[in-house]
Amino acid sequence: MKREYYIALKTILRKETTRILRIWTQTLLPPLITQTLYFVIFGKFIGSQVRSINGIGYMAFIVPGLVMMAVISSAYGNVVASFYGAKFQRNIEEILVSPTPDWVVITGYVLGGIVRGVLVGVLVFAVSLCFAHPMVTHAWAVVLFTLLSSILFSLAALINGIFARNFDEVAFFQNFILTPLIYLGGVFYSIHSLPKVWQEISLYNPLVYMVNGFRYGFFGFSDVDPGVCLLILLGLTVVLTCINLFLFKKGIGLKN
């Protein structure tokens, strides 16, 4: 990589990280509180009445799902808020008038999403240890699926940020698409416990592959083969990367 590109990338990442840490009460604290409530209500109160799944207690079973849910929401929220904010305040023009190539800008924002996703994921996992002691069977899978999921949802958020014309359109995808996908993605249950037709419908939800790949890293088993999860996520990452590159090249949503 050319040295100038590296410096530009470092600058975007530094700016994003500074933002995440500067407004930590908006970026780090809320998911921590929300996930703690999930642990208390679903894990402790309701989970005690739910039978174990594949020999894993319900509280431990939902840990990977809840961590992944926090990672995804945080990575997505970071990129869409930061990028649309930059568009709204027009300081995205600082980058657009510079010689920074499109792929460096995309990578910079995605890295910002990864930083927040991983930070929140680690914090939520630390909190989960107060309620359960989930084992980590395949650490590589935990790391790989965390990174892939952060990348994938950061790329999706960037597309949302590019197309959004107002804050309503930023919230629309999060409220009406992302949230249902998360809740129907097997965070709180095994998709095998669903009726056959819903199992098949669930397979169209990318969240299922993230949660299951991640869960495989913890327990060594999952509803979907981890190899399939990996391939699907890699495929989606390539598709979303290409869409972003195309949008930047054409200047759609960015230039007049």
Binding site: R3, A8, R14, R90, I95
Partner: peptide, 30 residues
């Protein structure tokens, strides 16, 4: 090219020197 646009378009919550230094970063300056 250096650009001075018509409307203020820097990040309003950033520090003055950070805005200038970050812009240099986008141009690949150490």
């Amino acid at each position: 090219i250096g650009v001075v646009p018509q409307e203020f378009n820097f990040h309003m919550f950033e520090r003055v020197q950070d805005i200038v230094v970050n812009q240099a970063g986008y141009f690949g300056i150490d």
